[in-house]
Amino acid sequence: MSVVPGSMQDVYPPTTRPHERGRGIWGMWLFIGTEAMLFALLFFAYFYLMASRTQWPLEKDPSYSYALILLAILLTSSFVASWAERGIKEHGNLGRLNVGLGLTLLLGIAFLGVQYIEYQHKLKELLPTDHAYGSVFYTITSLHLAHVIVGMLMLTFVFARGLAGHFNKERHLAVKNAVLYWHFVDVVWIFIVSIIYLSPHFYGGN
């Protein structure tokens, strides 16, 4: 007696099957998972170092005006990126995709610019080699910066493929992945702003 496998479909498989597009998304989610863990652990380091201090940050609380501008830039860029993605996903609109990705990239460049200015100010009062607070501040923010750059490289890659006309309503996995990663970079910045820039002002720092 033979047992019938999971479903009839398995015994009498279809003559033609659609192409598989799920692997890439699995890969991207797991990649984001491991990266999120990395940031979580750096935040852990931040709190761990804080726990043995009566005063943290050690000197001045960080000013958050630039951080909020950066946040606004990133949030906007995330919306633009989704808009672009929906263009290809729902309407197969390659033009909208390209315009949207181009705009997202411009916002990314704006982020790099503002971050550069912020660092220039910040470095006058705090160096990473001053003490552990300086170290952890610059490590977390510059690691995020590195992620912004990686995200922008992904978007550039997808942008180039969009210009080459690769995508349509069915085939746009790369867009999905790059935009997903970009959202991740965005979310990390929300955490950084809350934990590093804003929270010291609430627990009565300096």
Binding site: Y48, P128, T129, D130, H131, A132, S135, T139
Partner: peptide, 15 residues
């Protein structure tokens, strides 16, 4: 020259 594990500069080897 960072100070994560340097107890002399607010770091902590236990980290």
């Amino acid at each position: 020259g960072f100070h994560f594990y340097d107890s002399g500069a607010a770091g902590d080897p236990l980290l």
